[in-house]
């Protein structure tokens, strides 16, 4: 069943993709193939592959429980928040928070997670910024 859902989504994506490809505006310079053809071909392959999945689906994968799914969603949201926090708080603070959250969610006790977060953040800062000279996000505090 899962495969059929993915196949259905694939079909929708393929239809949308082909439709969008036909909307590509041509410029005055063009070649016999043009910029539309290849994307349309890809869309057709995508549609065929989706049909194959609908007609001969594999066994369902083992989906995690809703709580785990939510957790993965929240972790992704934390990463997004991290991206926006980077320029505001600077690399070290933002990374320490995000890394602490992730190690907590991966099974560390909260306090150890915080220690790990700070260690990871400072470690990366020292190795990549101070030693290797990579530019990292700079916050109002200068790091």
């Amino acid at each position: 069943m899962s495969d059929r859902i993915l196949g259905g989504i694939g079909l929708l994506v393929a239809a949308f993709y082909i439709w969008q490809s036909t909307l590509v505006e041509l410029s005055f310079i063009t070649d016999p193939v043009g910029p539309k053809t290849f994307p349309i071909m890809i869309g057709i392959v995508l549609a065929l592959a989706s049909l194959a999945m609908i007609f001969s689906p594999d066994a369902n994968p083992h989906w995690p429980q809703a709580a785990k799914l939510l957790e993965i969603g929240i972790s992704a949201a934390v990463m997004v928040a991290y991206v926006y926090l980077l320029p505001a708080a600077g690399f070290v603070i933002a990374t320490a928070l995000a890394a602490a959250f992730l190690s907590w969610r991966l099974g560390a006790e909260p306090l150890r997670g915080v220690i790990a977060g700070v260690a990871i953040s400072v470690g990366i800062y020292v190795v990549f910024h101070l030693i290797l000279g990579l530019s990292l996000a700079k916050g109002p505090l200068g790091f």
Partner: peptide, 21 residues
Amino acid sequence: TKYLMPTVAMISFVGIYGISG
């Protein structure tokens, strides 16, 4: 892994941030 994977994730961010910021 609870310490390794966060490190991997953060290094991934550092790398991509380094390309374009």
